[in-house]
């Protein structure tokens, strides 16, 4: 059952490329977890400022939102590596090994294609915001290219991990859908 026992993770064998990608995804996962912790602390700080000190809270809400978005997008590749993106494996489970491999190849290629499309347009969107100097319409007025950067970076890392997974599948290092 792919993706649910905490021990499951992408197999790398001794392939240096796969190991490098796994390491990159893990670092991205650390960043993602750190951002979630930062969001917890900032929210608590905001409550203290408002409730205890009766002060203004201008930037906190926005900062927390952007941290959470970045945590999600940067975490994608790590969660992919941990096989944490839930799927329905009823059909793959019931297929003979050969057909299962073909199906895994098709779904991997489709997944890589859609992520590549999002990466492309995500980069374009980020670039647009950067070029036009867009800011958020708040008192804080964050330059939007900063939070938008999480889109191309997050999907770029996810693409890298997906390509590594595909290579592992083709080389036989990883079983299709992680099924024995």
């Amino acid at each position: 059952m792919s993706g649910h026992s905490s021990a499951a993770a992408a197999q790398t064998g001794s392939n240096p490329f796969l190991r490098a990608v796994a390491a990159i995804s893990t670092v991205a996962g650390w960043c993602s977890a750190a951002m979630i912790v930062a969001a917890v602390l900032i929210t608590c700080q905001m409550i203290v400022i408002r409730y205890v000190l009766n002060g203004s809270t201008v930037w906190q809400t926005e900062a927390v939102i952007y941290l959470m978005i970045a945590a999600t997008l940067l975490g994608l590749s790590y969660v992919q590596r941990l096989r944490g993106h839930v799927n329905v494996d009823l059909i793959p489970l019931s297929l003979p090994a050969r057909v299962r491999f073909v199906l895994a190849t098709i779904t991997s290629v489709l997944t890589i294609a859609i992520v590549a499309v999002i990466l492309w347009y995500g980069y374009e969107y980020w670039h647009f915001a950067w070029e036009r100097g867009w800011r958020s319409d708040t008192v804080w007025g964050v330059k939007l290219w900063i939070p938008y950067l999480a889109i191309p970076v997050g999907f770029g890392l996810l693409l890298l991990q997906l390509v590594a997974d595909f290579i592992a599948l083709v080389l036989g290092i990883e079983k299709p859908f992680g099924l024995e």
Binding site: R50, T57, V58, T138, V139
Partner: peptide, 18 residues
Amino acid sequence: GKAFEQMLAGAGASIASM
């Protein structure tokens, strides 16, 4: 609105965004 937040903060209100 941003401009109102700035004005109200100027009047000594504490601004909470939600």
